[in-house]
Design a protein around this nucleic acid. Structure first.
Lengths: 190, 190
DNA sequence: TTCTCGTTCCTAGCAGCGCTAGAAGTGGAG
DNA sequence: CTCCACTTCTAGCGCTGCTAGGAACGAGAA
């Protein structure tokens, strides 16, 4: 039995190794650099080993994305904790979200642009996803007024997401970023 | 001279043919189906012909995207024309934008998610891009108040963009789309 | 009319991708 | 020590975007 246990432990470690290597490689050189061959070389195993852990490359990206959601939830929570009023809290969360997307573009892409096979907005969604969304929702709640809280949170989130993706693709001038962020927050906190 | 003229005309026609075929193929089966081989077969020429017209696949997508911006500008303009008040105009433009993204997902992707080599938000940007942006801006202007018009327009645009991309990737429940759209418009028209 | 030259276009191929079948190696059980 | 099951690797498939080099074509000169 303990042999089996050791093997399972080693398997789990290697799975972590894969996810971590994928994440680091992606953050360092972008997802285009994360090929199955390159990733295999990075973890010092052969290519097919990846497929004994994950169904395919998308599944690896999804695993990285789930890590990202946990990180995001933590950062949003920390930002919210520093604020003393609902308005400040929403602003802090918005700024934290923007900073997350700006500083970890590859991770953010895995979470929101790629990896479609992750269940979202359903009960089967991983807890980390709900945690991140709930952080946003907790910041929005005191300012919801008559609006549907879920829909309002999703709308605020969409605003942040649009701001970051359009800017990252060169669609928006970087110089006006703070101005835009302030406008968005102002429209949701009043 | 007229021989040269005929050749240039034929070249231009073939270029149009390529862009049209790429667009139709993308809208019918998605951009993944638009491979250079498939596209070459579609226009009944060999693969390398594409490269005598465009630098690469990205350039073809960029050409399709520019077409898309012209279409979008026209649809936004038409929507704005139907409205009689600034609030109605903003709502109409927002709804038109959402419908455009929903009904032409592949085209929308070419415009906003792929094709990074298109100049944006600079003077070198193609006129069609400015036309589309200006339609949005004209709808936002009467409601701008004290905010910077350009930044405000970009923020509203980001909200729409975020709404559509997150929904299309399965991050938002489709059922609440209208509710979210109404909230967004409400936050920018008051 | 025939030859030559410039252009156009195609065939064939490169390096790389995600993924997989089947062989080779490894280690515990009898 | 042998056997067997499991793990891991080598090799290869079909595909991608892209390109080099040669064949075919057509216009102008002799």
């Amino acid at each position: 039995m303990s042999i089996r246990a050791r093997r399972e432990r080693e398997q789990a470690e290697r799975e972590r190794l894969i996810v971590t290597a994928a994440r680091e490689l992606a953050e360092a050189e972008g997802w285009d650099a994360v090929t199955t061959r390159r990733l295999a070389a990075e973890i010092e195993y052969s290519q097919p080993v990846l497929y004994s852990h994950f169904k395919g490359k998308d599944a690896i990206m999804a695993a990285v994305a789930v890590e990202g959601f946990a990180d995001l939830a933590a950062e949003l929570g920390a930002a919210r904790a520093t604020a003393s009023t609902p308005r400040e809290a929403l602003a802090a969360v918005g700024v934290a979200y923007a900073r997350f997307a700006e500083q970890r573009p590859a991770l953010y892409d895995a979470m929101f642009t790629h990896a479609v096979d992750l269940p979202f907005a359903t009960l089967e969604a991983p807890p980390a996803l709900w945690a991140a969304f709930n952080e946003l929702q907790d910041a929005v709640r005191p300012l919801a007024g008559e609006d549907d809280l879920g829909a309002l949170t999703e709308t605020f989130w969409s605003g942040l997401h649009g701001l970051m993706t359009l800017m990252r693709n060169g669609r928006l001038r970087r110089a006006d970023h703070d101005k835009r962020l302030a406008i968005l927050i102002g429209r949701f906190a009043f």
